[in-house]
Design a protein around this nucleic acid. Structure first.
Length: 374
DNA sequence: TCTGGGGTCCTAGGACCC
DNA sequence: TCTGGGGTCCTAGGACCC
């Protein structure tokens, strides 16, 4: 299970360049060469993707759209068209599937694919991956960046380091020199908070991190310590996961203006609960936990959840429980809420027998509600 | 930086049981 | 009755990812 084993793998990672914005530019020639920003257009919207032209203005993902507009008043701001992106994504994933039976989509624009079975060396894998990259361009007229390496982490790093329109192979003997100068924030799973903590320990680069004994990282970071120790050495034992069962389903809405009216809050929760219930039913799943999320104007966020004795996919029951949690368990004062959300978890396959049980529970809402509390 | 939406995984504390 | 220890489940919060 050690390194020798790991280095046997040949993993590729493909990442579409500025995906949403690139699709819009592809479909409207007038947008080519211009700063294009795709994201929420409302008062509280954020940027999903900025084209490379927009990035030169300092615009990046997750920034508020309002801020992006100030940085680039002449930019083109578009609401996302997810159906379209999903279609394009489907074609890209199809290309990956044509070269590997083991692919792991991470999002619409990103996926790992395992080439270990079809390529016996990293260079053979690189050849296949480079064909894939060309194939993606031919079929979609979109550019992507590809990394090829002995494991997932290094493959992803490869696609990141040579972006856009990049192609990078990381061989085992280059791992140390590639990793050493990187900032610790470049490691997968190290975000703002962990990066700060590491920096406050005097650890700014991966080379710094590598000087720290495993035991110290364990003590300081728990489970994450092990991961840090390995990533700093370019080790990543996590396999490609082709199919993962979903563990939760949720909907949430940030309102353009804070919601103050309890009636509106209830209606909104019920609407989201309906969508969650429908999605559960579509996927033939049932849930044993119902949860709400409340975010206040000051951005403080609370969650409240309730366990059910019997799994449910009933939109009505989920809605009633959500409303109950809001009134009885959340501390909504009179300042209103900025966001509400409804989610379900502890999912299981809904059997036909369970489905008939749900109907009973749903039919007698009051009784069903009481009986469902743990 | 006035901060979306949909997820995953981890942690800490308390209840409960033996 | 001054007070164990381990395991498991649940809840709430938080870090992180795209």
């Amino acid at each position: 299970m050690h390194l020798d084993n790991m280095s046997e793998s040949r993993i590729a990672h493909l990442d579409m360049d500025a995906f949403f914005a690139a699709v819009e530019q592809r479909d409207d020639p007038l947008l080519r060469g211009k700063p294009v920003v795709v994201g929420g257009l409302g008062a509280r919207g954020v940027v999903a993707t900025a084209s490379y032209e927009a990035r030169t203005f300092g615009i990046h993902s997750a920034m508020s759209t309002a801020h992006a507009r100030r940085l680039c008043p002449g930019g083109v701001f578009l609401a996302p068209q997810f159906d379209k992106y999903r279609r394009v994504s489907g074609r890209v994933m199809g290309i990956l599937r044509s070269v590997s039976s083991s692919i792991e989509p991470i999002s619409l624009d990103e996926a790992f694919f395992d080439l270990s079975a079809s390529a016996s060396t990293l260079d053979d894998a690189a050849q296949i991956a480079s064909d894939v990259k060309r194939h993606v361009w031919r079929e979609t007229r979109l550019s992507c960046s590809v990394g090829v390496a002995p494991n997932r982490f290094l493959a992803k790093l490869g696609s990141e380091l040579d972006k856009p329109d990049g192609f990078k192979v990381i061989h085992p003997d280059e791992v140390d020199s590639v990793l050493a100068p990187l900032g610790v924030g470049q490691l997968w799973g190290v975000g703002r908070v962990t990066e700060r903590r590491l920096c406050s320990m005097g650890l700014r680069t991966v080379a710094d991190l590598r000087t720290v004994p495993s035991a110290l990282l364990d003590r300081e970071f728990g489970q994450m310590g092990r991961v840090l120790y390995r990533l700093a050495r370019g080790q990543d034992p996590t396999p490609i996961r082709t199919r993962r069962d979903s563990r939760s389903i949720s909907r949430e809405i940030t309102y353009p203006l804070d919601l103050k009216d309890p009636i509106e809050m209830e209606a909104s929760l019920r609407g989201m609960a309906h969508e969650v219930g429908v999605q559960l039913a579509e996927q033939h799943l049932a849930a044993r936990t119902v949860r709400i999320k409340v975010r206040f104007p000051d951005f403080r966020t609370e969650t409240r959840q309730i366990g059910l004795a019997v799994p449910t996919s009933s939109p009505h029951l989920i809605g009633e429980l959500a409303v109950h949690l809001l009134h009885e368990r959340a501390e909504v004062g009179n300042h209103g809420v900025r966001l509400l959300g409804v989610g379900v978890s502890r999912l299981s396959a809904a059997s036909v027998r369970q489905l008939s049980l749900f109907d009973d529970v749903d039919g007698g809402a009051q009784d069903g509600l009481g009986a469902s509390f743990r």
